[in-house]
């Protein structure tokens, strides 16, 4: 009898300890602070985290808090915000459809600019090298073959 009672007490204790863990597992935790830097205050045109005074931002923050307290995940809360305020509420464009251009166009522009600078630098260096070889190593113009022959003839004429 005593062992049965002990088993029941242990079971109750285990259940009490397990309940918060189960609840935590069922409730994806996020916070207002975690979300407000990833969404916009549409009226202010700034991320929600920066809009501390605007009434619309305060209402939006309260809406996020209500959903956090209802154990909604970050993705669910963002979806709810899009449902309420449209896709422009997201601070970062989505990585699909036309919004993908927000990531790909700057990247392509950067690559094109880099390639342009590289090509121009190469051409500039080649031209610099050609100019350098045209001059002597000491920076004076190098004598060409005709000039050399003329110099030899002059030297012979003066019979030094």
């Amino acid at each position: 009898m005593r062992s049965i009672l002990r088993a029941i007490v242990l079971l109750c204790l285990a259940a009490c300890l397990a309940t918060p863990g189960l609840a935590a597992a069922a409730c994806p935790k996020t916070s207002v602070a975690d979300i407000e830097d990833e969404v916009m205050c549409p009226v202010c045109g700034t991320p929600l985290a920066l809009a501390t005074e605007a009434p619309q931002a305060n209402r939006e923050r309260a809406f996020v808090l209500e959903l956090v307290e209802r154990c909604r995940s970050k993705a669910q809360i963002k979806a709810a915000l899009v449902d309420q305020f449209g896709p422009r509420v997201l601070a970062m464009p989505r990585r699909e459809g036309f919004d993908l251009a927000a990531y790909s166009v700057p990247l392509l522009a950067l690559l094109a600019a880099g390639a342009g600078i590289a090509v121009a630098t190469l051409r500039w260096r080649r031209a610099a090298a050609a100019e350098h070889s045209e001059k002597g190593s000491d920076g004076t113009p190098a004598a060409d073959a005709t000039g050399g022959a003329e110099l030899e003839a002059d030297m012979a004429r003066y019979d030094l």
Binding site: A120, T121, R123, W124, A127, E131
Partner: peptide, 11 residues
């Protein structure tokens, strides 16, 4: 050979 201007100031 005429040396072109450096591309970096242009960029």
């Amino acid at each position: 050979v005429r040396r072109p201007p450096s591309p970096l100031p242009l960029a």
